[in-house]
Structure formats: structure tokens, C-alpha cells
Amino acid sequence: MLKNIQEWLLMLAIFGVTALLGNWIGYDVIVWEAVPGMLVLIGICLVGLILGKVLPGSIPSVAYVALVGVLVSMPWIPGSSFIVETTSEVNLLALTTPILAYAGIAIGRSWADFVKLGWRSIVVAMCVMLGTYIGSALIAEVILRFQGII
């Protein structure tokens, strides 16, 4: 368990450093101003990951991470304003760039399978994604308008 925590911490730290540098270059947030926010986020991840490991049941760790994140930032929780303010310095897009950089490197191994697909599969795949995206957006639009939210 202790070994696990150590590994998670190290890898989150490596990822965090990369994201903070991207956050600085891409979104003009000076590195040390975003450090507290990154530490808070890493803390939330660790608590969620540990809960996922310790608690029984097959609920994935990310669900606990999301839950912890939501709980500590709810307006009626004392100290939530600190969490919200510090983490707002860490830009979401600064986190996604390194994720997709790692993803690009990882999917190289799926490339051979990809070229075998053929054009018909690719056309259908695009329709699949377009379909779910537009379908969901249309329903959301209708309901949100009906409720008068937008």
C-alpha cells in the first residue's frame, strides 16, 4: 500500500511539473502561483485512489476522485473557497495537453490495427461520434430551453 502511494505520488508529481510548465507558457500563470492548486489536485487524487483501493466493491478509483473533488469544493463546506481559488490557477487545457501527448505516444502501437480498418469503417466511425454528440446536444437543448435555463 505504502509502495503504491509512493508510486502514485511520484508519477502525479512528474505529470504535475509538466502541466505547470505548460500552464505557464500557454496560459500565462507563473509556475509558483499555480503550485498550491496543483498540490491540492494531487492530494484529491491520492485520497480518491486510496479510497478506491481500500473500500470494498468494484467502483473505479476515478469515481472516488471525482466524489472527493466535488465534496471538498461544495460551497457549504468550510475551506472550499481556498480549494476553488487555488485550483482555478491550474488551467484545464494545461492538464489535457500532456495527457494527449502521452496518449499519442501510446496509440502508436494501435496504428497497425488502424491502417487495416478500411475507409468504410472510418466513415461509419465518424458518423457514430457525430451521432452521439448531436443527439445528446439536441435533447439537452430541448430540455434546458423547456426549463428556461438557457
Partner: peptide
């Protein structure tokens, strides 16, 4: 792990 960090960030956006 990167996605985990992203989910944590989304969590603290959802909270407020």
C-alpha cells in the same frame, strides 16, 4: 494518472 488529475480538476469545478 493524468486523467485522474483531470477528473480531480473537474470535481472541484463541479462542486461550486
Amino acid at each position: 494518472l493524468g486523467v485522474t488529475l483531470l477528473i480531480a480538476k473537474i470535481g472541484v469545478i463541479i462542486g461550486p
